[in-house]
Each structure stands twice: as C-alpha cells, then as structure tokens.
Amino acid sequence: MQALKHYMDDGGLFDELVFNFCVAEFVILLLTAIVMVVWIYKGIAPQIKILKIAANNVKEGNLDFSVATGGTDEMSEVCNAFEDMRVRLKNNAKDRLEDEAEQRALISNIAHDLKTPITAIKGYAEGMLDGVADTPEKREKYIRTIYNKANEMNTLINELTLYSNIDTNKIPYNFQKLNIHSYFEDCIEELGMDLENQHIRLDYANYVDPDVLIIADPEQLGRIIHNIVSNSVKYMRADVASRIAITIKDVGDFVQIEVADNGKGIATKDLPYVFDRFYRADASRNSAAGGSGIGLSIVKKIVEDHGGKIWVTSKENEGTTMYFVIRKYQEVMYE
C-alpha cells in the first residue's frame, strides 16, 4: 500500500484522486440539496399559497372556503389548524348575526306590543280630559281599562328584563320546599278570578298525595303557569266556550303539571319550534294577539333550571296541552 502511494505521489496521481473524490462528493451533496429543496418547495409552496389566499379571504370577511387537508406532515397540520380557526370564526359570525336578528325581532315585537296599550291609555285619558267619561260608571270603566293596559306594559317590561337575565344566565332563583297542594290551591284561586273576568272556565284536578313536596322557586313556578295560561288565553276560539284545565299528576320521582285549552291549536309543522325565542307560528294571528315572542322560551329555561322538562301536544281547532315536570323533594337518609 505504501508502495502504491509512493508511486501515485510520484506521479501526482494521488492528489488528483483526492481532488476528484472531493469534487464528486460536493456535486453529489449539491444535487441532493437541490433535489431536497425542490421536493420540499413543491410540497410546501402550494400549501403556503393556499394559506395566503385563505388569510386574504379572512381579511376580506369571506369565510366560505376550506383549507382542510388529509396529510399528516407539519404543513398539513398548520392548514388543518387554520381550518379549525376558520370554522370557529364562521360559527361566531353566524351566532352574532342570529343574535342581531333576534335583538331586532325583540325590539320590533316589544315596540309593537307597547304601542297598543300606550295608544289605548292615551285614548282613554284624552276621553276623561275631554269630558267624554261624564258618569261615574264610565269613569270607572276608563280608569280600569287604563289600569289593565298599564299592567300589560308592566308584563312586557318584566319579560324583557327576564329575557336579559336569561341571556346572561343570571335568573335569580329562591329554591324552597313547596307543598304541591297548598301552592296550586292559591295559584288556582288567583287564576280563577282573572279567567272568570275574561269569561274563561277553569277546571282543576290534583291527583298528587297531599303531603308531596317539590323543590322550586315559587315566583318562577308562578311565572311558568302564568305564561302558559296567558298564551292559551291569547289563542282562544270565538266559536266555542273557552276552557282551560290544569291537572297535577304523580309520575314517580316527578310531579307532572298539564295545562290544556280548547283554543285554536298549533300546526304540526310548528310544534318543534314553539319554545324557540321570538318564534311565532302565525305572524298575522300573533300580531293581533300580541306578545313579545319570548314567553314560552322563558318557560322552557325556568323548567330546565328546575331540573325538569317541558313538551307540548296540539291539534288545530281542537286545542293545545302543555306538559312539564318538576322533581319531588326527597329526604336523603344517612346511615
């Protein structure tokens, strides 16, 4: 070996061989680097271009595109992360538009429903000022009408306040043990007087044991009953004697309350939406009947916050029945 090296050194061949080897190695490394750069560029450049276009779309407010990929490399993960961000932005934008639409609907409904009693109050007040109510009977009638219309306005404002609390999950609750018999006897007595003045018959049946207790907020439970009954009153039929029936049943761990009427009923296609905020099954009919469109959505929220559920059955021109359940109070036994 030493002899070969001595021979090549003598001819300068060894140095040339080393030089050629280095050059060849450099060329191989250079070609490899070029191939790698081209391969990486071809793999990354399209995705970078897609991300650039996507970023420009987002900047312009256009979120109707997709950059999702099925790859597992780093750039694919970046694209998928960008896609997740786009979907969240789109959903947030959609929710914001829906909230804005709901706010506009609420303002429109409240404005319409406040205008009616305000107009009536103004008309009857002007009648009293102009001397139209010239007898004690007329004056009493005018004052009572003004009082009732003011109560309507107060109810709408209370609904609006409660709606605001619902939207922020800040409904104030005062849960306590309630005897189902005692509570509903008082409730029915109050409802009966109001419905009698409106020439609506109220039937009541309670099939629960007298000592059964529930855990509920008495004020909010009363709001549930009031809102359901008020909704029934709005859509009574003129061709039959109006009737509302409230039935209390024992269904195991729950007490079930049913509120049935013989009113106009609800179309089958509208039943899935009756508890949605601002939903009105018949815009023209509801416009005449009034209401903010949030009464039953408030009812659903309160029932669910009590650990219960609510549902409805109805047939057009036959009537509607609202059902909801409230959990019974049960003593926890410790051993």
Rank of each mutant, 00 (worst) to 15 (best):
N286R: 05
D10K: 14
K42A: 13
R96K: 12
V233H: 00
Y334A: 14
G265I: 00
Y235H: 15
D9L: 15
I298N: 09
A24D: 10
T321G: 07
V303E: 02
R327I: 05
I28F: 11
E159W: 00
P210Q: 12
E137F: 03
Y124D: 03
E189N: 07
H226F: 07
H112T: 11
G265T: 09
I188Q: 01
A288W: 04
G222E: 01
A281M: 07
I107F: 11
D130W: 03
K264S: 10
V35G: 12
L106I: 01
I266P: 07
N56Y: 14
F275D: 06
Y334R: 13
A267Q: 13
I188L: 01
A205G: 03
S314V: 06
P46W: 15
E318R: 10
N206R: 01
R139Q: 15
N91Y: 04
G192Q: 00
V212M: 03
T145R: 08
F254V: 07
K249I: 01
Y7F: 15
A150P: 01
K301A: 04
F65Q: 08
K234M: 03
N158R: 09
L114H: 08
I302Y: 02
G131M: 11
G222N: 08
I294W: 00
A205T: 06
L162S: 13
C79R: 12
A283L: 15
K328H: 05
D167I: 11
R327Y: 00
D95S: 14
G263H: 08
M1P: 01
L63I: 09
L114F: 11
L17V: 11
P172Y: 02
K94H: 03
N92W: 08
Y41M: 13
K115T: 10
A241F: 09
L296C: 04
I50R: 10
L296H: 02
N20S: 10
F184A: 02
V18C: 09
D10Q: 15
I118H: 00
E98Y: 10
Q198V: 01
V229E: 00
E152Q: 07
A24Q: 12
E16W: 04
I188G: 03
E83S: 15
F19R: 12
I200C: 06
A281D: 10
E16I: 14
I294G: 02
L195T: 07
L160D: 12
A3S: 07
K301P: 00
T145M: 04
D305R: 09
A55K: 14
A150G: 10
H112Q: 12
T161M: 03
S230M: 12
D305M: 05
A288Q: 10
I157G: 08
K300R: 15
D305T: 07
Y173G: 05
V233N: 02
I180F: 04
T321Q: 02
I266W: 03
F82V: 15
G308Q: 09
N151E: 06
A150F: 02
V58G: 00
D217L: 04
I310S: 11
T135Y: 01
R285K: 12
D167T: 13
M85N: 05
F278S: 05
R104M: 14
Q220T: 04
N169G: 05
Q103T: 12
N262Y: 06
D95H: 09
H181L: 14
L296K: 04
I110Q: 03
G61H: 10
L296G: 04
I248M: 00
Q2I: 13
N169D: 15
F324Q: 11
G265W: 01
D167F: 10
T320D: 05
K170E: 08
H199L: 11
T119F: 08
P117W: 03
